[in-house]
């Protein structure tokens, strides 16, 4: 698997982190398992301003995990580590979360699970026409503007 910014170790760690951020739901696998880390790697390549917060957060997670690698922690301990990292630097952590959401919710399969079959165009949506009869009470309110 070729990455553009992340090392293979960072990619693997990010993938595990993403599995905690957006866990499985019904038949849907968690975000990391779906490959969201590779998508985030592409974002980092295209938008250099994202690199510092994301890479800083990954390093902080490694440090907080202590002697045992993050991968060897149980689920409860992983979440505990992530909460501590988030509390220490919420701004950087939120960027990692945001990019994970970006990677996850732009997938057609995830959108389909939310009932979205197509992007907004070219089909758009058919919505009911406006019904003027709904305005009868407001029309009866009389002049509400001032010009004196």
């Amino acid at each position: 698997m070729t990455t553009r910014i992340l090392t293979p170790e960072e990619l693997a760690l990010l993938s595990l982190v993403q599995d905690e951020l957006v866990p499985s739901y019904g038949d849907l696998p968690p975000a990391g398992t779906l490959g969201a880390a590779l998508t985030v790697d592409a974002y980092l390549a295209e938008q250099p301003r994202l690199r510092r917060p994301v890479l800083t957060t990954l390093r902080a997670i490694e440090v907080r995990a202590g002697k045992a690698p993050f991968a060897e922690l149980d689920a409860g301990r992983r979440v505990e580590v992530l909460r501590k990292v988030e509390n220490a630097d919420p701004e950087s952590f939120s960027e990692l979360v945001k990019q994970t959401y970006n990677a996850y919710y732009t997938r057609p399969d995830i959108q389909a699970s939310l009932g979205i079959d197509n992007p907004p165009q070219p089909l758009g949506f058919e919505l009911p026409a406006f019904d003027e009869s709904r305005l009868s009470r407001v029309r009866a309110m009389g002049k509400l503007w001032r010009d004196d």
Binding site: L21, Y25, K98
Partner: peptide
């Protein structure tokens, strides 16, 4: 859904973790 996850029109992102979905 993406913009909702990231806070919608407001600055209130949907929480990560077990409550997320």
């Amino acid at each position: 859904p993406l913009s909702v996850a990231n806070g919608g029109i407001l600055g209130h992102p949907v929480p990560w973790g077990s409550e997320h979905h």
